[in-house]
Amino acid sequence: MRLSFILNGKRKVMETEPDRRLLDLLRKDLHMTGTKEGCAEGECGACTVIINGEAVHSCLVLACQLEGKEVLTIEGLEENGELSAIQRIFVEETAIQCGYCTTGMIMSAKALLMHNPNPTEKEIRNALSGNICRCSGYTQIIRAVKRTAAEGGC
């Protein structure tokens, strides 16, 4: 099928199969490997991207569901070749250990801050409850999201 959608702000037209997962479209077809595959069944959140402003699992969306939609991935966050505020603050707060969960974590946090620029800790924890990190105790991650909000950027 011919698929036309918006990827990180740019229109993308490609020939693909209707049952191609968005995750495979990104990683295998477009070689955008920032998005990670974890459990492949919607439990771990590693593959989270933002579609039409909402955090979703790219492992649980097919190409045939994407026509005309706006997809935002970790690659779309950088600004003029620099890390965006949320990425920089994740680094500065050591909210990254092995790094595998990080892109999903950042995309879930980004979606939260897009809807709610001043979340409470409870709201942050709720928004990230579908993202599993097996290194940290989440403390640094929560701190990074709080600081991003406090500094008014995401």
Partner: peptide, 27 residues
């Protein structure tokens, strides 16, 4: 039929569903 796909895609990958066609009504 596929709604979000949060169940069907997992079933397809486990080999529990092998549809000849998928109908998506979300548009």
């Amino acid at each position: 039929f596929i709604g979000g796909g949060t169940d069907l895609i997992i079933k397809m990958r486990m080999g529990l569903a092998a549809p000849d066609a998928i109908c998506y009504l979300g548009y």
